[in-house]
Nucleic acid binder design. Sequence first.
DNA 1: TACATTTAGGGGACCACAATGCGAT
DNA 2: AGATCGCATTGTGGTCCCCTAAATG
Length: 453
Amino acid sequence: MGYVCDFCGEQRSMVYCRSDAASLCLSCDRNVHSANALSKRHSRNLLCERCNSQPAIVRCAEERISLCQNCDWIGHGTSTSASTHRRQTINCYSGCPSASELSSIWSFVLDFPSRGESTCEQELGLMSIAENSTTNSRGENTIDQNASGAVEVNDRHEIAKSGVWHGSSSIPESSSLPNNPDQPTGSANTSLPKLYCPGTKCPVPYDDANLYEEFNMDEMDLSLENYEELFGVTLNNSEELLENGGIDSLFGTKDMSGADSNCRGAVASELDINAYFWDTVSFLCQISNGKRMIGVILKQEWLVDFEVTVSSVGLVNAIQPASSNAASADSMMSNKTEPILCLTEKQGHSNLSFSGLNVESTAADYQDCGASSMLLMGEPPWCPQCPESPFSSANRSDAVMRYKEKKKTRKFEKKVRYASRKARADVRRRVKGRFVKAGDAYDYDPLSQTRSF
DNA sequence: TACATTTAGGGGACCACAATGCGAT
DNA sequence: AGATCGCATTGTGGTCCCCTAAATG
C-alpha cells in the first residue's frame, strides 16, 4: 500500500525531496520544483518502495524494488541469501528533468513492477513540460535546466557509474572512491550514508570512551522522533517513560537524595523548556506550570548553551557549582564528558508532556538533585541498569551505533514540516520580504523573474 | 595599551493566510 | 461515539533592523 503525494494528496507519491521533507508524485514534483531557481536545486530521489517514507538509495535487481538504506539493510544485511542480490545505486537528481532524463538516471524507472497501478508512471511519459519548458523547432520538449544550466544528476563516482555491487557490505563512500570528473561539485546529497550492520558488522566498534568523546551537543537532533530509533524501543505510552524508574532509569541516573540542595533553587515560573538532551536522545518537554525542571548536561560546550537558554529562569545558578560546594568551577568544566541529570522540584506534582503525550507524574518519580554533586560523583553516564530496565547494553550499543550513523549523515538544513505551506509561501507576494494581502501592491513576486514596482 | 569608531555577521521580528488543532455542539 | 462546525493557533520565506563581536584607526 503506497502513500499519497504530500502535495496533491491524490496521486501516489514516488519521489522524495529531502529539502521539502515531502513525498511527491511525479507531477507535483515537477510543479513544485519548477517554481523557482532555488526549488529546482532540491535534491530528490525515488521513494523507498518498502517503507514509503524514506528516499531510496539502492535498487535490488533480483527483487526489482527500490530501497532506502534501512530497508536495504533489513532485506540484505541480515539475510545471507539476499545479501548476494545485485543492487544498483539510485542517483538523486535536481532540476526538472524530463521523462527521458529520468529514465536515463533510473534505467528502471519505467519498469516498476509493484507500482503498476499508479498513474504516476504514465505521468512520467506524459508529463507535460509546463512553464519552464521550451519547444524546439521540431516540436520537441527540451530538457528543463536548473540555475546552473544543467539537470543535475548526483552520482556516487565510480560505484555509481558501474552502478552495481554485491553482498551486504556497505556502499563505498564517495571519499573512498576516485574522483569523478563528471561529478558536479557542490551538488547536494552526493555523500550517501555508509551502511552499517549493527553488531558484528559494525565498522566502528562501540567504545565508551570514544562514545562520549564524539558527543557534541551542538550536533544533537532535537527531535523526540529519535526515541525509537535511538533506543530501539518503541515508546508506546508516555507512562512507560516514567515507570520503572522512568527518566531516571532511562538516563541511568542514580539516587540523588544526597544531592546539592542548591539545585532546588532553580525555579521557573511559566516557561517552556524546549530541549532536554541525553546522549543520543533528545526530549522535547513542556513544563506546564514551571514546577519542575529537568536538565541534562553533557559537555561544557553545551553547558554554556544551556545556561544561556534558560538563564532567565534561574537555572544557571542551579547548575553552576555553588561556592559552598566542593565542586569547583574548574572541576565542573573539566568534566566535559559526564552528563548530568539535574532535576528540580518545587512542588510534588506537575504535568509533563512529551511531544504531545501528557504525563501525570508524581514527586516520587524524580529525586531532587544537584548538578555539582553529580560532578563530584563522577559517575559515568551509563550507570548500571536496573535488571528490569528495557534498555539492555545490547540495545544501548545499537542505539549508539544508530546515533553515530545518523550523526554522520545529519544535515542541518531547515526542515520543512508542511510542504504545502512552503509551496504557498514560495509563491506569495511580498513587500520588503513581508507577506502582503492578496490584491495589495507588492514589490516582489516570487513567480516573476524580475521585481515589479 | 586603551579607547572610539567602523564593519561584518547573526538572529529575531514582521507580514498574510492556508493548514492544522481542538473544543463545542 | 462519531461527525461537523467554528475559532484559535501554527508555519512558511524574504527582508529589515538591532545587537554583538571583530577589525581598524
